[in-house]
């Protein structure tokens, strides 16, 4: 129904590649485990970081998730969904646990004292643009921290990971309509939180 925008291009053969790696993993092939890890760990970390806004907690979650995934590969049923949605379901659930385990400050400390897991800014740019990029990322992080966990999950899966609403419903275990309304609500909340001045500044620098 809704038009999909190509802001996060994903390899269409990805699922087939996962399947063949999983088959090799099940035979005990250690290189296949490593290849599978290399294929997804970065995305799992980004997802965890966007939800927890804490580098060490995110590392812990990625480790937990990957160990669990490797031990439970026999439970993964490709008939019921893609490997990526299965992986994200586990990640989101582990992040919820991590949040529960430890109360997280709404504003990540890392964003106040120079980020550790700093986003890679586009290369070959003036210092002004780099500063603007950094500011934009910091205000986005602060805005995410102010969102409720459910809305944060929705917006991060949608724009951070480029999932379709159908995939989101699978990961969040909710009706598609719920996923859609959460994205709308998150969008509205973020719009009022994100500083319009900063957006304007960023666009000015980017076009310069």
């Amino acid at each position: 129904m809704a038009k999909q925008m190509a802001y996060s291009a994903r390899d269409p053969n990805e699922e087939a590649q996962f399947q063949s790696l999983i088959a090799r993993c099940k035979e005990g092939d250690q290189a296949a485990h490593e290849a599978l890890y290399n294929a997804v760990a970065g995305d799992v970390y980004r997802l965890a970081y966007s939800l927890l806004l804490h580098p060490q907690d995110s590392e812990d979650v990625v480790q937990e998730v990957m160990v669990y995934v490797f031990r439970s590969l026999h439970q993964f049923d490709p008939q019921r969904g893609s490997f990526r949605t299965w992986l994200y379901t586990i990640t989101v659930s582990r992040c919820r646990n991590a949040r529960r385990r430890k109360w997280l400050p709404t504003v990540a400390l890392s964003s106040l004292i120079g980020m550790k897991g700093e986003p890679r800014a586009p290369s070959a740019q003036s210092p002004e643009v780099a500063v603007a990029w950094r500011n934009a990322c910091e205000s986005l992080e602060r805005a995410l921290g102010a969102l409720s966990p459910r809305l944060c999950e929705a917006i991060v899966l949608r724009y951070g990971q480029g999932l379709t609403y159908r995939e989101m419903a699978e990961v969040l275990n909710c009706p598609q309509k719920t996923a859609e309304s959460r994205v709308r609500l998150a969008h509205e909340a973020l719009r009022s939180i994100l500083n319009d001045v900063e957006i304007g500044l960023l666009e000015e620098f980017s076009s310069a």
């Binding site: 925008m5 802001y7 897991g117 890679r120 934009a136 986005l140 992080e141 917006i155 973020l190």
Partner: peptide, 14 residues
């Protein structure tokens, strides 16, 4: 939306 699409995928790159 532009802001989100541009910066969310870059957030937390390990």
């Amino acid at each position: 939306v532009y802001e989100l699409k541009r910066h969310l995928p870059a957030l937390g790159q390990p």
